[in-house]
Write a protein that binds this DNA or RNA. Structure first.
Lengths: 190, 190
DNA sequence: ACTTAAACTGAGGCATCCTCGATATAGTCT
DNA sequence: AGACTATATCGAGGATGCCTCAGTTTAAGT
């Protein structure tokens, strides 16, 4: 239990790690999250084994790429806890998450799976996101702005569905879906 | 231009065709639309080349499998043109399509792509579906039951999104999403 | 310089996709 | 029956991707 005191990573390791991340990001943007990992390694000028050394599986790569982006999203979420109307805050949060979850083609599916899948790097982030959502939902409900029968699962379903939509249709269409559904969720409160 | 007058297919060909369809259906149900085609051929007791002889690509297989099911769906659609309320008819249609489009994991994506993709077998079916939808939408709008700003693209987006949801979450959750969104779409009419 | 843990390499086993020339056979014609 | 031929089937093989691991290289501490 005595903290092995890991040495700092070697310079070449760090270099390759960054290079891989950059190329993976490019590849995922172009071809979606199921882009060829051998292709990524090749473009990064590195052997395939090196890629697997840094990222044992595809999810790890996706997780690493999302880390920064996640921080920004969480910050936005916390910010929304106080400002604006309860209803507007929730709506904006949903839009923010949808945009985030549609960064790469196929990401929505990975995230949807990752919520259950204990132990993935994504799992922690998903929990954090869920927590932020829950608080915004509670606030909206307390303010009487949200239909009583709307659950947080409903909101998450919408987020995922809209993210997927954004991957397969014009972004504007996904936004309209969110708007219409939120209208349904917020409307008959009173 | 003189109709080559194709001879009827050979008995073994017909047999293999049916066998392949049956096994493909089983495989797609279990593993989704990206199940291994070599596996399908193997399970059908046929060489891989035979499979490709009958179905040049995966889409053709999916299209053939959907043909019957599509007929039933279309029938239901026509039936809904007259009975019930305009609003109820539209809602039921959406539910029907969603259930249809979630028959296999991954089907939603194929259908979403197939709508644009001229010339796929699915394209014709997609057009037919779109037509039915449009008429139900027009009817609902004429009855003043649908918000004026809701487009048929919105309805299709919902269908696809909900179908995807059904693939990744409990079916009941997808149904709730449909219900909530329809509430938003139907509500502020007057 | 020397040492060594850390990192890299890439061949190789396995799965899948899809094509195409060689081979088999169902159905027909005499 | 036997032979003919359009139709079908077969399955090896090239291409690509996944992932592992034994062997080799190298950064960095002494």
């Amino acid at each position: 239990m005595s903290e092995p005191r890991r040495r700092a990573p070697r310079a070449d390791a760090r270099r390759n790690y960054e290079r891989l991340l950059a190329e993976a990001d490019a590849a995922f943007r172009q071809e979606g999250t199921d882009a060829s990992l051998e292709g990524v390694a090749r473009r990064a000028g590195v052997a395939i084994g090196t890629l697997y050394g840094h990222f044992p599986h595809r999810r790890a790569l996706v997780g690493a790429l999302l880390r920064d982006r996640n921080q920004a999203l969480f910050a936005r979420g916390e910010e929304l806890q106080s400002g604006s109307t309860a209803a507007a805050a929730l709506t904006q949060w949903v839009h923010a998450v949808v945009e985030h979850a549609a960064a790469y083609q196929g990401l929505a599916a990975i995230l949807a799976a990752g919520l259950d899948d204990e132990g993935s790097e994504l799992h922690a982030s998903c929990l954090r996101m869920a927590d932020i959502s829950d608080r915004l939902i509670a606030r909206a409900r307390a303010a009487g702005a949200l239909r009583q029968d709307v659950t947080s699962a409903d909101v998450h379903a919408l987020m995922n569905a809209a993210a997927w939509t954004r991957e397969h249709m014009p972004a504007e269409q996904a936004d309209r879906l969110v708007k219409l559904t939120m209208d349904g969720m917020l409307s008959s409160a009173t």
